[in-house]
Structures are given as C-alpha cells and as structure tokens.
C-alpha cells in the first residue's frame, strides 16, 4: 500500500533554495522565463558563455576537465585573479564551488515557461554576518542578475 501514498518532491529550484538557506553567505532567487526549459537550460548549461554574464566576479570561465557530470573549470576575475571550480552539471541543475565562492543554477518546467533559479555565495568565515549587513544590496544584485538572464533568454529565442 505504501506505493499509493502521496510523496512530496523537491524540484531543482527548491533544492537550490534549501542550499541557499542552509549555507551562511549564500543567497538564491528565481525568475520565470517565458521560454521552454530546453531552450533555457541550453543557455544556462553553456557555462563558458553564461557564467561570466551571470557572475560579476567572472571575466572568463574555461572548462578544463570533464568526467560525466563532474567538471573542473577555471574562472578569472576582472582583476586577473584565478579560481578553480569543482562543478556538477546535469540537466536542470548546476553547482559550482571554489575555495571562496559558490554558485548554482536550477530550472523547473512551468507549462510552456521555465522557472529559473540562481544561487550565489561566499565561503569565508563570518559570511553569515556579512550577508545580514549586505542583504539589501545583495538582494538587488541578485534580482538584476535574474532579470537580465530572463531578458537574454527571451531575446535570443525571439530572434530564432
């Protein structure tokens, strides 16, 4: 009988929000993109193109190793600083972490549209306190990041 009992699923965007809430110094948000999930994820999963547009701290991202869904990527900051990221990339889910930075992306189908989630964070001692101090500007930054992603995805698709 247990097979007939309802279960609750945690979709990738909810999973991203759980991670954001549990990690001091991380923050997540979501936006509805008026395009099908396959199109949205084709853009999001192109890390070398999309991550520098999403993350202000990245000027350039290069994937240098790939083993199934696990990748290693090098990111370079506008000041030339380099960071190695361990990445898990699978359909509708991406998680990147370096020694000091985190970012994540997730997508869920919503009819003909897509709910896209993004997480950014820092991994330094006292990140939770920093988060509370910088909460408002960080929220505004995150909102802008999400809105610009949606605008890019919708504009590109409209040109097709």
């Amino acid at each position: 009988m247990s097979a007939a009992w309802p279960t609750a699923d945690l979709d990738p965007v909810r999973r991203l929000h759980v991670m954001a809430a549990a990690i001091p110094g991380a923050m997540s948000g979501e936006v509805v993109v008026r395009r099908p999930i396959a199109q949205v994820w084709a853009r999001a999963g192109d890390l070398e193109t999309e991550l520098p547009l999403l993350v202000h701290d990245f000027r350039e991202v290069r994937v240098r190793d790939r083993d199934g869904e696990r990748l290693v990527a090098d990111a370079r900051s506008p000041l030339g600083l380099r960071a190695r990221f361990d990445v898990v990339l699978r359909p509708n889910w991406c998680w990147c972490e370096s020694r000091f930075l985190l970012c994540g992306m997730a997508a869920v189908e919503q009819g003909d549209d897509t709910l896209f989630g993004f997480l950014g964070g820092v991994r330094v001692p006292g990140a939770g306190r920093l988060e509370s101090i910088a909460s408002r500007p960080a929220t505004a930054l995150l909102r802008g990041t999400l809105d610009r992603f949606a605008a890019r995805a919708e504009a590109e698709s409209a040109q097709d």
Binding site: W5, P6, T7, A8, D9, L10, D11, R14, H17, V18, M19, A21, A22
Partner: peptide, 20 residues
Amino acid sequence: GPIALDEGPDAAQNALIIVL
C-alpha cells in the same frame, strides 16, 4: 507528502532547510 498533501513540497523544503 501524506501529511501536508498539496503543501508537501513546501513542507519538505522547509524541513530540509531546518535539518541542514
């Protein structure tokens, strides 16, 4: 799922946040 029904995903999300 069986306790919160339609609110199950919200409950699971909240519970996992508390756990972690």
